[in-house]
Design a protein around this nucleic acid. Structure first.
Lengths: 243, 243
DNA sequence: CGTCCCCTTGAACTCCATCAAACCTGGTGG
DNA sequence: CCACCAGGTTTGATGGAGTTCAAGGGGACG
């Protein structure tokens, strides 16, 4: 079996002087990994973690490789994706500071991970994690909680992929990012249109047309630096869950 | 752009809160029969479980309701689904004997569960589960493992929904069911075409045409009692993961 | 200032949804 | 036992949302 997992944790503070680029999360984000896991920050995972830095577009691990470590994102943005033999790609999720990836009890990664921006991650060797789980039973419950949140996000994404129109998908995506990022109306979109398309089950062209439509409808505004401002979150929400 | 009719012949109203909550547990193991569940069968969960029987098409719980219990399927088949406000439905997963549902650490169910066939389930009150987790730390690890498998299945489903064609979806679905059912080449399909469609992000008509095509291509054969025989699993596998 | 890459826009096509009707099949009641 | 009905299923015809193919911007970087 293989297995894999993208997990969202929720750091409020990152050890070793690194800064969490994000956060202050609403209690329950309906369609994104999330939820309060501040507890994990204080836990022993940090003690055994090695820090690693990845360049833009650099691979962190690939589907099929031996899954010998779990990662937690400290800074930057990561994409997780699966490929079909002919190259079609589905992006499972985008990870930001605080999210975990690789949590699984299988020996191979089930998807690939690449840095979208320059990123810093903590690497936690699998064997050490296992030992930790033995000595700290409460950790398993926390990880269970984190994994469950991931699963919830995955189910929302299924609804999106299976039943929403292109524009609904785009609106849902922007809102999810916004909730995840917290307060501000402006959100960072460091990923390409192609990444977004592969996350939403669309093509770059359709994503681009969608952005144009949202712009001309005055629902969003494109800022510099690939940032987007949500001008009317309520209208976007209507668009996201409805027809 | 509307779509569906989730309403079968069923008096059970589907409320649907838009409340956030959590829970989880579909189960369509991509590559294994119900493996790791034997251990759980012997465990203390059984001690506190109440058995319940549900009729065909009966609701087990609905999205938005207080999530006060976790369930384990003993017999029958259950569908888990989410609805959009306009009625479009996405079936998150089909549960069979051994699968768990409702595992989560939130106070509301995030999707609805209905019996497809007459079903027997064990009901495990949430509060008792929590107590058990405290007294039996190893249980959390087992549940973590189960949840992780779920997540893996969910990610495969995302790839399916986002990037596969109608026929590829159908082939993948049949193979997943077959792997789950284990040995025999014949698999039970107690769910309707509409259920299958709502699971694969298609319409009943497209599912029906797909079945017809697989039949005329001699890849499957329809048996009585809604059973299907996979005549050429290899060809189906090619169809499932490729173009 | 040119090149590369991504994004945007346009036009044609395709797969699947939609609309519609015929066909089963199981259940009911005469 | 069969006629009838209601439900789901299959098949057909048509249309549309999104893909595919193609070309034209526009910003970053050398």
């Amino acid at each position: 079996m293989h297995a894999h997992t993208a997990i969202a944790a929720q750091p409020t503070r990152v050890p070793h002087g690194h800064q969490a680029a994000v956060m202050a999360m609403p209690r329950v984000a309906p369609s994104r990994p999330a939820a309060g896991f501040a507890a994990i920050d204080a836990d022993p995972l940090a003690a055994i973690a090695q820090f690693r830095v990845f360049d833009r577009e650099q691979s962190i691990f690939a589907e099929g490789e031996a899954a010998d470590a779990v990662f937690r994102v400290v800074d930057g943005m990561i994409r997780l994706y699966k490929l079909l033999p002919d190259g079609r790609r589905q992006i499972i999720g985008f990870l930001q500071a605080g999210d975990m990836v690789g949590l699984a009890f299988a020996d191979r990664y089930l998807y690939s991970a690449e840095a979208i921006t320059a990123s810093t991650v903590q690497r936690i060797p699998r064997c050490q994690l296992d030992a930790l789980l033995d000595s700290q039973p409460a950790l398993a419950r926390r990880l269970l909680s984190v994994t469950t949140s991931e699963l919830v996000a995955a189910q929302d994404q299924m609804l999106l992929l299976g039943r929403k129109s292109a524009l609904e998908k785009l609106a849902s995506f922007l809102l999810a990012l916004s909730r995840r990022a917290g307060a501000g109306r402006a959100i960072a979109l460091p990923m390409s249109r192609c990444d977004i398309a592969d996350h939403l089950g669309l093509t770059t062209e359709t994503v681009s047309r969608g952005f144009t439509k949202l712009k001309t409808s005055r629902l969003i505004r494109i800022l510099d630096g690939g940032r987007v401002e949500l001008l009317d979150a309520e209208a976007l929400a209507d668009l996201a869950d409805c027809a």
